[in-house]
Design a protein around this nucleic acid. Sequence first.
DNA 1: CCAATCCCGACTAAATTCCTCTGGTTTAAG
DNA 2: CTTAAACCAGAGGAATTTAGTCGGGATTGG
Lengths: 145, 145
Amino acid sequence: MRISTRGRYGLRAMVELALHFGQGPIPLKNIAARQEISDHYLEQLMGSLRKAGLIKSVRGAQGGYELAKAPPQISTGEIIRVLEGPISPVECLDEPGQPSCEKADQCPTRLLWERMHQRMNEVLDTTTLEDLRAEAQRLATSPEF
Amino acid sequence: MRISTRGRYGLRAMVELALHFGQGPIPLKNIAARQEISDHYLEQLMGSLRKAGLIKSVRGAQGGYELAKAPPQISTGEIIRVLEGPISPVECLDEPGQPSCEKADQCPTRLLWERMHQRMNEVLDTTTLEDLRAEAQRLATSPEF
DNA sequence: CCAATCCCGACTAAATTCCTCTGGTTTAAG
DNA sequence: CTTAAACCAGAGGAATTTAGTCGGGATTGG
C-alpha cells in the first residue's frame, strides 16, 4: 500500500519547481542533485509530467523545466496520478463509472474500498502544490522551533 | 497503491465468518470454495489472522474457523493491517512515534503523506466487520432494486 | 483406525519496481 | 560554425514483491 519512488521523487521535483516558479527554467541536473535522485531516472518522471501538461521544458543550453501553471492551480492529485496511475485501493474502482468486476453488486467489501478511495482522492485533490511550497518555506525559515 | 490479494481475500473470508458467527466452526474448504480462493493460499492468510487473535481455529474433523470476537468488535483496520502490514502511503509513517527518516523535519511532501495516512486509517478503524456483514446481508436480500 | 481438518515451511513463476545505459535531438553561447 | 549543455526516447536488467503451489505433519470426531 505504498506510493512508489515515481510519485515520491516526482512530487519532490515539483515542489522544487514551485519554489522557483517564475524564475525561468531550472535544469534537471540541479533538481536531481538537490533532491539526490538519479538524473536519468528523474528524466523519465519529468517526461511523464511534461506529456501530461504539468510542466514545460526548454531545450538546449540554459534550458530546463518549469511549471506550466501556478502552484495553486496544480493539485497533488494531478501529479501523483500522472506518475502512479489511478490511486485506488482496489483495481475495480479505477474507472469511476465502470463496475469493472461482474460481482461488484454482490461485493460487501466494496463498501470499505469505496470509503478509502474517496478519502484518499479527497486529500489528493484538495492539497495543492502551493500548500507544499508554503510548507517547504515554513520548514526552511523556522527549522528549529 | 493497491491492497494485495492477501488483504482482499482475507477480508472476504472474515466477512464469510461474520455471516456465520455463533454457528460453530466453518471449515476453510467451504470458505475457499464460496469465495473462489485457493485452499492452500487461504490457509496462509488464516494462519496470520489466527496468530493475531482475530479468529479461533478448531482442529480435527468437524473443525474449522470462527471469529474470536463479535463482528462489531473487529475493525477492518485490524484485519487489513495483520495481512498487509502497516497501511501508509510512505514507509516513513509506518511507526507512529518514529520519524524513521532523518530528513523528516525538512520534508515538505510529508504534509501530504500525513494527510493521506490519517484519512486511510480513519476509514479502516471506523469501519467494522459488522458494517460489512450488514452490507452483505443487504446485497443478498435486495439484489435487483 | 481413518478421514476430515488445521498447521507449517519451503519453493517458484510472474509481475513490478527502480533504476541504468545508449544514443539521439535541440539550442544558446562563443 | 562548433561545442557543450540540456532535453528526449526507449531498451534492458537486477532486485524485490506478489501470488500462489507443494508436500507433508499434527489433531480429533466418529
